[in-house]
Simulated assay, not measured.
Amino acid sequence: MDLMELFFIFLGAAMVVYYGLKLFLFMRILFPKQFFPLPNTFFNSMGEWAVVTGASEGIGRAYAFALAERGMDIVIMSRTKVKLDQVAKEIGETTGRRVKVIVADFCGETVFSGIEEQLKDLNVGVLVNNVGMLPSYIPRDFLDAEELDKIITNVINCNVKTMVKMCKIILPGMENRRKGVIVNVSSGIASIPFPLYTLYAASKVFVERVSQGLQAEYKHRGILIQAVAPFGVSTRMAGYQKTNFVTLSPEDFVKSSLLYLRAGDKTHGSVCHTVLGWLLQSIPLKLLHAETVLQRLQDYVKNKLGQNESLSTSRAIFENSPKK
């Protein structure tokens, strides 16, 4: 047998192993209950309380309800007290769990000392960092934003600083008890450099990298830290698009994502969103970044949201993780 034959035998064997591993990984995604089982008492065994930021609606609200249904008392945070009080009432009436409301504008600079004071006596077993800000409904070039300096500050404070600060507040108690769960909500568009959502997408890359780094540091101390990066979820920011196989309701997405808590330091949270992530990363960036593709993306979002051009300069904080 000459060297050429050995080379092709080795190459064939390597391809079989590679695609066999790919198939195995996909099977794990298809059957999370079998591959990543969680005992029924998993969540309340972490601690009495779960803390959810951006919990007044959307994905954050769905996480708060899901964790209460699994036996945890809940701390919900956002900037809108009226909405928080309504969510707290609904959770209490539906699940019988205790709910604590903390009003916090995460774009501010001095909000965290007050939060830490209100949480200091609670046995927090789960933290969901969900709050996020998108500067505009309509995707646009970085320099096209009005009051760009203010937008930069707000996005960094809300999407970046908040996640790190909340981990700083909650992690010490988890480390002392040698157990806990932290879920940091990222976004599917952070899978690649994403023009027109440049600042938002970059902030979500930060969320993923910090999550993965912290998991490497703290997994041996009994703490599970995971970034969850969804694509389509029917939230206010997405114009409450009709749900389908790709665009999930917040409740369905959260129910699915909790099945993947043991699936690694990053997950897309559902089968369809995992496939979307693989597809997005397989398309050449030169094609995705073509001017015609970006223009069509802008037009598509405008049509979907039913907004006119004037809304592209409006800014809003969405207390569910937006543009998934």
Rank of each mutant, 00 (worst) to 15 (best):
2 D>W: 00
3 L>E: 13
5 E>T: 05
8 F>R: 02
9 I>L: 12
10 F>Y: 12
11 L>E: 00
12 G>Y: 05
14 A>G: 05
14 A>P: 00
25 L>F: 08
26 F>Y: 11
30 L>Y: 08
32 P>V: 12
39 P>V: 00
39 P>T: 03
42 F>M: 01
44 N>Q: 12
48 E>A: 02
50 A>C: 10
51 V>P: 05
52 V>G: 02
53 T>Y: 01
55 A>S: 10
64 A>G: 10
66 A>L: 00
67 L>N: 06
68 A>H: 02
71 G>P: 05
76 I>T: 07
78 S>Y: 04
79 R>L: 02
82 V>Q: 10
82 V>I: 06
84 L>S: 06
87 V>F: 04
90 E>N: 10
91 I>T: 07
91 I>V: 13
91 I>M: 07
103 V>K: 14
104 A>T: 09
105 D>G: 08
106 F>R: 01
107 C>M: 15
107 C>G: 15
109 E>Q: 03
116 E>G: 12
119 L>A: 11
120 K>Q: 04
120 K>A: 03
125 G>T: 02
126 V>Q: 02
128 V>T: 00
135 P>I: 10
138 I>G: 03
138 I>R: 07
142 F>M: 11
143 L>W: 15
143 L>F: 14
145 A>K: 12
145 A>H: 14
146 E>S: 14
148 L>N: 12
153 T>M: 12
162 T>C: 05
167 C>F: 02
171 L>H: 02
173 G>T: 11
175 E>C: 09
176 N>P: 01
176 N>F: 07
177 R>Y: 11
181 V>I: 13
182 I>R: 02
182 I>M: 05
190 A>K: 06
192 I>G: 11
193 P>E: 03
194 F>W: 10
196 L>P: 03
202 A>Y: 06
204 K>Y: 05
205 V>N: 09
207 V>S: 05
208 E>P: 03
210 V>A: 09
210 V>E: 04
216 A>F: 08
216 A>Y: 09
218 Y>V: 14
220 H>S: 15
223 I>H: 08
224 L>I: 15
226 Q>P: 13
227 A>N: 06
228 V>D: 02
229 A>S: 15
230 P>T: 10
231 F>P: 07
231 F>E: 06
231 F>R: 04
232 G>M: 09
238 A>N: 13
242 K>C: 13
245 F>G: 04
252 D>T: 10
255 K>M: 11
255 K>T: 14
255 K>D: 15
261 L>E: 00
268 H>W: 08
269 G>D: 06
272 C>D: 02
273 H>I: 10
276 L>S: 07
279 L>A: 14
280 L>P: 14
282 S>D: 06
286 K>Q: 15
288 L>Y: 11
289 H>G: 11
291 E>M: 07
293 V>K: 13
294 L>Y: 12
295 Q>D: 15
298 Q>S: 07
300 Y>I: 09
303 N>G: 14
308 N>L: 01
312 S>C: 07
312 S>L: 10
313 T>V: 08
322 P>T: 00
322 P>H: 00
323 K>D: 12
